[in-house]
Simulated scan of single mutants.
Amino acid sequence: MASGQIKERASVLQGKTQNPMRFEISEGTRASLARWMREPLMVESEHLWPGPFHERLHISTRQYARVVHEWVTSIGLEASAYGTHSMRRTKVTQI
């Protein structure tokens, strides 16, 4: 965010290489993020997807894998063909 607005473009550092990965955030995604960030769970949080326990500030790798599995099955794709590794360079994963 900048000046209270979600940016149109963002970048993250890749974990292995530390190279920056730039991507655009669509208007619909920005609107969804803005709504999510107003949720009571998100107030004062530093992470978009906080962990379920107070001692863990963000979701774990395993929890993220479960989210990917749910995304894939919810749109009717074969869950065994997709995982966190195959999704690693997609916009949704970067966001």
Rank of each mutant, 00 (worst) to 15 (best):
V92L: 14
L48H: 12
H85G: 12
R38P: 02
K91V: 11
V92M: 14
W49V: 12
H58V: 06
E46C: 13
L41I: 05
G51I: 06
L41H: 09
Q94Y: 13
G28D: 10
I6R: 05
H47V: 01
I6Q: 03
G28M: 03
N19C: 06
E8F: 09
T90Q: 00
R62M: 03
V92K: 15
L41Q: 05
H54Y: 14
G4D: 14
R56T: 13
H85E: 00
A31S: 06
L13F: 06
M1R: 12
G4A: 15
L13S: 03
A79I: 11
E27Y: 09
Q5S: 02
S32M: 07
V68E: 02
Q18G: 13
L57S: 10
M37E: 12
V67K: 05
R89E: 14
Q5Y: 01
A31G: 00
I95Y: 08
S86C: 01
S26V: 05
L33C: 04
I75S: 04
T61P: 12
S3N: 15
A34I: 02
I95T: 11
I95S: 08
E27H: 02
A31T: 02
R89D: 04
P40G: 01
H58G: 12
V92H: 06
H47P: 10
R22G: 00
T29L: 14
A2H: 11
A81N: 11
Y64T: 08
I25G: 14
M37G: 03
V72S: 00
T73K: 15
